[in-house]
């Protein structure tokens, strides 16, 4: 419980296996990239402190496994997320098509209070591959999908080259922060001895 108020933001990264979720995270947090593919088992967790508009906050990044066999962990992992990052590989149409499933799945499992305005960010990764020649999902198509889902911010990145990664996460942090802004007043009941020690049912005002 730090005396100076800091904000912690839970960020979930979702997407098909192999689109580069872990690489993006490693590039962002550790400024490192490895060509070797290592499947994530369950989930990986990384922490990054970020300064944004004079405020210090911590990103708690949940890098999930893309494989379907891990999807049973859904509720547990998605609960209480402040932002969800959907990642696809611009060189794989299937990974792009699946964005819709990932988004739906997240909204069902996490059941945020305001699903319409829940902050998502979409990242098209691996723009560096083959000089862009093997690309199958056009930026236009991706942006159109993002626009249709309530203007989701869109970034094209290369985790390998470190292109646009910082910018994408800046946006993620900004959006997550925005959604967590509402200040709440904590006001529990007071014991009412007169009515057999039952708390009044005025409810918590938070």
């Amino acid at each position: 419980m730090p005396s100076r108020r800091r904000t912690l933001l839970k960020v979930i990264i979702l997407g098909d296996s192999g689109v580069g979720k872990t690489s993006l995270m490693n590039q962002y947090v550790n400024k490192k990239f490895s060509n070797q593919y290592k499947a994530t088992i369950g989930a990986d967790f990384l922490t990054k402190e970020v300064q944004f508009e004079d405020r210090l906050f911590t990103l708690q990044i949940w890098d999930t496994a893309g494989q379907e066999r891990f999807q049973s962990l859904g509720v547990a992992f998605y609960r209480g997320a402040d932002c969800c990052v959907l990642v696809y590989d611009v060189n794989s149409m299937k990974s792009f098509d699946n964005l819709n499933n990932w988004r739906e799945e997240f909204l069902i499992q996490a059941s945020p209070s305001d699903p319409e305005n829940f902050p998502f960010v979409v990242i098209g990764n691996k723009v560096d591959v083959d000089g862009g020649n093997s690309r199958v999902v056009s930026e236009k198509k991706a942006r159109a999908w993002c626009a249709s889902k309530g203007n989701i911010p869109y970034y094209e990145t290369s985790a390998k080259e470190g292109i646009n990664v910082e910018e994408a996460f800046q946006c993620i942090a900004k959006d997550a922060l925005k959604s967590g802004e509402e200040e709440e007043i904590y006001l529990p009941d007071t014991i009412d001895v007169g009515s057999s020690n039952q708390p009044r049912s005025t409810g918590c005002e938070c």
């Binding site: 369950g42 990384l46 922490t47 911590t58 708690q60 949940w62 962990l73 547990a76 992992f77």
Partner: peptide
């Protein structure tokens, strides 16, 4: 805050 990742791990174990 620095232990956010560790905290997430604990939650993952419990939730799993």
């Amino acid at each position: 805050h620095k232990l956010a990742g560790f905290s997430a791990t604990l939650q993952a174990i419990i939730s799993f």
